[in-house]
């Protein structure tokens, strides 16, 4: 599966459009991580737990989007976009969407 966030896959020809595919996920860390993040607010620095959380959320959202594209028989997703929202404190909602296509 090839993913790009431009309209095409460079070097390959788009032969068929399968429409919009998307994947979303809401993930949170256990309360210990939230407490640690609260402590970090005193000293500053990177919140590794939350960076990890955001990374996991991104992977999960992409995986779901790719699964949908595979079900449609696509071999690439172009014009991928990420969107985020705040459902609850301590949780990350990530939405990945794009156009499923078949390229040759």
């Amino acid at each position: 599966m090839i993913l790009t966030n431009i309209e095409s896959v460079p070097g390959l020809r788009t032969v068929e459009h399968m429409g919009l595919v998307s994947g979303s996920t809401v993930r949170s860390k256990h309360v210990g991580r939230d407490l640690m993040a609260g402590l970090k607010n005193i000293f500053g620095g990177e919140l590794k737990g939350y960076t990890e959380l955001l990374n996991e959320a991104r992977e999960e959202a992409i995986a779901r989007m790719v699964k949908q594209a595979e079900a449609l028989g696509a071999n690439a997703v172009v014009n991928v976009r990420f969107s985020t929202s705040a459902v609850a404190a301590g949780a990350a909602e990530l939405y990945a969407y794009g156009t499923a296509v078949r390229v040759e």
Binding site: A37, Y50, L54, T84, A86, A89, A92, L94
Partner: peptide
């Protein structure tokens, strides 16, 4: 793209934890 795990609202009201969260992609 910026996210808001910590509950920092777009209008500036902060949640439990204040942080800046960025996703870069290309």
């Amino acid at each position: 793209e910026t996210s808001s795990i910590s509950g920092m609202k777009a209008d500036g009201r902060s949640g439990q934890v204040a942080s800046v969260e960025v996703i870069a992609y290309g």
